[in-house]
Design a protein around this nucleic acid. Structure first.
Lengths: 341, 341
DNA sequence: TTGAAAGCGCTAACAT
DNA sequence: ATGTTAGCGCTTTCAA
């Protein structure tokens, strides 16, 4: 009982002190050997490594972050992982940050009026090194607060000329414009839009109008659909549009899912696509090229977007030059059979 | 300069001490008012709330977790969010844990031979309250180590009779069996399986064999496809199977994606589905019912699975009775046109 | 290259 | 119902 030995009670975790004793060095040397090996002599480093292995030491990040004031947490707000685009983007972020020493903390955003509260109550307690959003932050108050945090903030998805800090987005306006120009080239005459008309929906619609205007065309009917968007909604939308705009020969849906519903319904009604009505979507979900009538749509590379955002953020966290704080991720028109490509 | 006032240097964060001074109480009272309000008088609580609002105090979770020994972090290992099933499951977990005070920390699992290292180096430093896996942990060594942590461990997806701690899975064998019985009822005679033949693939295949055996049938050809599974792989698989098993009249694919490829290729070849060849998949991806030839498949409710897992874990973290530590999430056969439903 | 002392901000344990 | 004291485990700062 004289020989002290490593008195490892089951209840107590191994600490640097234990490793230090085992290695015959001081705690701070252990700390340095683990987090900044270059500052420690090769030989000492080896002794420490052995002691770590022997004791099974695992650093306590609460203690290290508390003391150092450095957090390895990046908090990412995702509205819904069931949306494949968002899931892809988050995976892209995760991949970009792989091996960086940072960790992604998931945060939910139900509705934007709760965002501020969520940030303060659930995220700031972790003193995150950065925060990311799969979407731009709507509330000006929240934007201001985030800006004042003094940490990198990444907004994704939509384009804004004035991001809080950094932004990687798609140009919704550009997507709409591409489709408008395409509709013009195809010679459609009575044109409808269906989908969201707020936020990014508004941008798509505005771009669509602009693209159509190039060939002297207009949007003759708009069916706003702000909330949930399902295949069934798309089926019903087709009927409503045909009732609201008799002779409608082309519809641009703000979301592939709606367009898919419309395609199914059109076939059900015995309509020819695009002969009787042309249909286009937005998003290029993986399966829409595999439909009976492959869907014309706007391709949106959500994984690439997340990856780009993660990479920009990573540079920023290393204090490297990032050049532009705004980047646009590639977007393009996929012409397929549903508009008679 | 005598009157101390709240000396808020820009660099220093607000601490409990500052709130306490502002409210005219002691730091511990502030702490209690925030984390265990019932222990504090209504009036005091109000004073504290005002002081918090005035000072803009946000708790430092590193400090609180360090001191209390309680972590609010649940670490969830996801192999790939681009797989919609996994993304759905993670969203289910997140929803189930909403409002519980726990936070999901994303952890990647590249390959299982790195899992152990990832757990130790990236997760254990956060002393997580629990860990979750979208899959069962393969390595026995890692299983043993996780078991010894003394925290709740949730494995999802596959069934194992001996989970590390808790498990919510699908019975892959059951899924295969349902399909085997279905193939028997449909009277198919020359039957092939294509897909993974390891792990869950093996279970599906074993169940499939069992289901077929009920009507005296066997699997006449197996095309193992362990790695990536794309639509293109499915297209090629159809050709290989027809070459390897002439007269094959029914194929069960271990994944919808492969089955979709086979359906497309069959149509390309002018084959009748299911007249010339019946095709079934596994997973019920959202769009397979919307194909030209809707796909017979096994429905797998991945969001429901994640939700169930999150709920079970949440109970466990509250030290409530959870009854069985193993649950199976509903799975069922969706008979559609591709097998002549 | 290594070490000694101190303290990050909070809350458990023990008073009162 | 509230306060006092101490210390969670680490790393900063300063010294050698």
């Amino acid at each position: 009982m004289t020989e002290a030995g490593t008195q490892k009670r089951a209840g107590r975790a191994v600490r640097v002190e234990d490793v230090a004793r085992e290695a015959g060095v001081s705690p701070i040397t252990v700390s340095r050997a683990l987090s900044d090996p270059e500052k420690v002599r090769e030989e000492t480093r080896k002794k420490v490594a052995e002691a770590v292995a022997k004791t099974g030491y695992v650093v306590n990040r609460f203690a290290s972050s508390l003391r150092s004031g450095r957090s390895s947490i990046i908090s990412v707000f995702v509205s819904n992982l069931q949306n494949q685009h968002f899931a892809n983007a988050v995976q892209g972020c995760a991949d970009a940050l792989e091996g960086s020493g940072y960790h992604l903390l998931m945060a939910q955003t139900g509705y934007s009026d709760r965002l501020q509260q969520d940030v303060v109550e659930r995220v700031l307690p972790f003193r995150p090194a950065a925060v990311m959003f799969t979407g731009v932050v709507q509330s000006e108050r929240t934007r201001a607060q985030l800006g004042k945090l003094g940490i990198p903030v990444m907004e994704m998805w939509d384009y804004r000329p004035d991001p809080i800090d950094m932004l990687v987005g798609f140009s919704n306006a550009e997507g709409g414009r591409l489709m408008g120009e395409h509709f013009g080239r195809r010679g459609f005459r009575r044109i409808a839009y269906c989908g969201r008309t707020e936020d990014r929906g508004a941008q798509r619609l505005a771009g669509f109008r602009e693209g159509l205007a190039a060939s002297g065309r207009t949007v003759d009917f708009v069916l706003p659909l702000e909330g949930r968007r399902t295949v069934t909604d798309g089926m019903q939308a087709l009927e409503q549009i045909r009732a609201g705009l008799p002779g409608c020969d082309a519809i641009f849906f703000g979301t592939d899912i709606l367009a898919v519903g419309a395609v199914l319904e059109a076939r059900h009604l015995g309509l020819k696509i695009p002969g009787d009505v042309a249909i286009a979507g937005y998003g290029d979900l993986e399966f829409v090229k595999q439909l009976h009538t492959p869907l014309t749509t706007i391709y949106v590379g959500s994984y690439a977007l997340g990856l780009a955002a993660g990479q920009m953020l990573r540079k920023r966290l290393r204090h490297e030059e990032i050049g532009e704080r705004i980047a646009l991720s590639p977007i393009h028109l996929e012409v397929r059979a549903s508009t008679g490509g």
